[in-house]
Amino acid sequence: MERERPSVAERLVHALDLPPEVLLNVPKTTLIGNVQVLVENHLGLLQYDPRAMRIRTARGELVITGAGLRIGSILPRELVVDGRIVHVELRR
């Protein structure tokens, strides 16, 4: 098995104990109960309908499934999804 060598930024984050999302542009996903998902550092929507949402991120595709999904607000860095959340998955 070949291990990926960590990048400079990753090593810096690790060495200085910084929050990774600040430097690495990786998504930070916060799930609040089963009613809200907050995605920071998203790169846009791939698909949106009330049952499923696919969000592009620097680390792959974030898939949220549920019922009655709504976009509470969408800003360049931040996306708030409201609704009944059933499943959150990261696909590479």
């Binding site: 846009g44 929507l45 949106y48 309908d49 009330p50 709504r70 976009i71 509470g72 607000s73 969408i74």
Partner: peptide
């Protein structure tokens, strides 16, 4: 519609309370 949302975000246009009423 997804393209509209992404385009708006890229242009710095804020959107909120979005609801997909149908496809």
């Amino acid at each position: 519609l997804e393209a509209l949302i992404n385009g708006a975000v890229r242009e710095g246009l804020a959107l909120w309370d979005l609801e997909r009423a149908s496809s």
